[in-house]
């Protein structure tokens, strides 16, 4: 006999549908904004402070990021939710520190990628977006990059789900590719909202391209293609080092890690419920990843 009062009901399909709808809207807002900005950029930059483009970049990317947060945040299990502040602290402390040095990297996504590997792409995307929003409490200039950060988290989670972190040599490659996509998407924000980059080291690289006659967006995109892939390759590698140093029990407490066998060395023990088959469903009702 089992009373419903002490046990959890299964998740309703309607809630899952709403969530999916919000996620798609958020992704569309981000993609639409990016395409609009790239298509319209030449008219704007020479006409003075391109505030129309700045507003579109700001509102489009922010609305997209907020929609993603609204879609994902309520559905995350508490065990993932409490990790987000931990990830944010890692992002902010490392990002603030590295940003103050003259290194053309950021390293401000370690927490985001860590969550994405442990809890999946949806949690990673939400962590990325939240990271920018909470960090803007200390540094409002990171706010417009929320969409880019969400994209990094989402891509890292997808890479983890498809087994990239099971093979160590694939990790920096996946980070490199993620960095290319993330850098290209974030470049219009830097170009239209800031008219440049916020760091001195990255600014020098942009200056070099500008001196060769590139448009601002082109120069910043090229700078992003130099900095971001390297940065994300480093971040992914550091996260892989960290994750493999965690004890088995800690790694296995995450249903995403168990179900998709994200990490190597977890599927060799006999008699364990991470074997393929019906036992794989042990962590199912959490809906932790999407």
């Amino acid at each position: 006999m089992s009373s419903p009062s002490l046990t959890l009901p299964p998740q309703s399909p309607a809630a899952a549908r709403n969530r999916r709808l919000l996620e798609i809207l958020g992704a569309l807002a981000i993609a639409g904004t990016y395409i609009y900005l790239v298509l319209n950029q030449p008219a704007d930059i020479t006409g003075g402070p391109g505030s129309a483009a700045a507003l579109i970049a700001l509102s489009g990317f922010l609305v997209g990021a907020v929609l993603l947060i609204v879609a994902v945040l309520p559905t995350l299990p508490v065990s993932t939710l409490v990790l987000i502040p931990v990830a944010l602290v890692l992002n902010i402390v490392l990002g603030q520190f590295v940003g103050s040095t003259l290194v053309p990297f950021y390293l401000d996504a370690i927490g985001t990628v860590l969550i994405a590997v442990l809890a999946g792409p949806a949690a990673g995307a939400a962590t990325g977006a939240l990271s920018s929003i909470v960090w803007s409490f200390f540094n409002p200039t990171v706010l417009p990059f929320a969409a880019g950060a969400a994209l990094i988290g989402c891509l890292a989670g997808l890479a983890a789900r498809h087994g990239v972190f099971r093979r160590f040599y694939l990790v920096p490659v996946a980070g490199f590719l993620t960095g290319i996509i993330g850098g290209v998407v974030s470049a219009p924000v830097a170009a239209f909202v800031f008219g440049g980059t916020s760091g001195l080291a990255t600014g020098a690289i942009v200056s070099a391209f500008r001196s060769m006659g590139d448009s601002l967006l082109a120069a910043i995109t090229k700078q992003a293609l130099i900095s971001d892939p390297m940065d994300k390759a480093i971040v992914f590698t550091l996260v892989a080092l960290l994750v493999y140093a965690l004890p088995r029990r800690t790694r296995l407490q995450f249903p995403f890690v168990r179900r998709h066998r994200v990490l190597a060395g977890l599927d060799v023990q006999p008699g364990l419920d991470v074997q393929p088959g019906p036992d794989m469903e042990a962590g199912r009702p959490t809906g932790q990843d999407s």
Binding site: M1, S2, S3, S5, L6, T7, L8, P278, A282, R284
Partner: peptide, 23 residues
């Protein structure tokens, strides 16, 4: 068994899921 409700677990997917708030 809590408050007269007994939950049986066998380590299978069909096991009841404890609602932490109610428990």
């Amino acid at each position: 068994e809590l408050a007269g409700t007994r939950l049986e677990f066998r380590g299978t997917p069909g096991d009841p899921q404890i609602d932490p708030t109610a428990w």
